[in-house]
Amino acid sequence: MSSKESVTERAAREARWAERLHDHGRRVTRQRLAVLDAVEHAPHAVAEDVVSAVRAELPGITVQSVYVVLSDLTDSGLLRRIEVPRNPARYETRVGDNHHHMVCRSCGRIDDVDCAVGAAPCLTAAGDHGFTIDEAEVTYWGTCPDCTDQKDLHIGRSNKER
């Protein structure tokens, strides 16, 4: 728990997650609460980052246990697993709204992008091949502002050195 977070705020957050776990037919465990809390505090976290955050709260938890909880929470719909080519899988608690992602080609930063049009699937396929489409997943690729600034700064230095 961070020094700025009150006991009341933490209790309220855990109560909210406990209710969501029950709604999804899952028991409330310290491991599940710790994983949900870690992912909520670091959206688009890779599994290794989740392990580190959970171990700060539960030092004895194994890496395998965190992976099992991540898988279970993803299967139950409480977490979303984001799989972007050339990047490790990431996890987020923002589920059920069919949003998309923007990925920086330089540093790998991922930001959420709301649906382009209306509700899920929010995009219309040119052909459905007989499928009933209920979700669309789009990945936008580019360069984040921080990397663009660094590139501009580097280019500025190079020009001055000439």
Rank of each mutant, 00 (worst) to 15 (best):
S3V: 14
K4V: 07
E5I: 15
E5R: 12
V7E: 08
V7T: 13
E9K: 10
R10L: 10
R10M: 01
A11W: 05
A12G: 07
A12V: 06
E14H: 10
R16H: 08
A18W: 08
E19L: 15
E19S: 14
R20F: 09
H22T: 15
D23N: 12
D23L: 15
R27D: 08
R27G: 07
R27N: 14
T29Y: 15
R30Q: 14
R32A: 14
V35M: 06
L36Q: 02
D37A: 12
V39T: 06
A42P: 01
P43F: 01
H44P: 00
A45L: 06
A45K: 03
D49A: 13
D49V: 14
V50N: 03
V50K: 04
S52T: 13
R55L: 04
A56M: 09
E57M: 12
L58A: 07
L58R: 11
I61Q: 14
T62E: 06
V66Q: 09
Y67K: 10
L70Y: 01
D72A: 15
D72L: 15
L73R: 05
L73D: 03
L73G: 02
G77H: 01
L78K: 04
L78W: 05
L79I: 02
I82A: 00
E83T: 13
V84M: 02
V84A: 04
P85R: 00
R86Y: 04
R86V: 04
R86S: 05
N87D: 11
N87A: 13
A89C: 00
E92Q: 14
G96R: 12
G96F: 08
D97Q: 11
N98V: 09
H99Q: 06
H100K: 03
H101S: 04
M102F: 09
V103G: 00
C104G: 06
R105A: 09
V113S: 02
D114Y: 05
A116R: 00
A119N: 09
A120S: 11
P121L: 03
P121R: 03
T124D: 13
A125Q: 06
A126Q: 08
T132Y: 05
V138D: 01
T139M: 02
T139H: 05
Y140V: 13
W141G: 01
T143I: 13
T143S: 11
C144N: 04
P145M: 06
D146I: 13
D149N: 15
K151S: 13
L153P: 08
L153I: 11
H154D: 14
G156E: 04
S158F: 07
S158V: 11
E161R: 12
E161K: 13
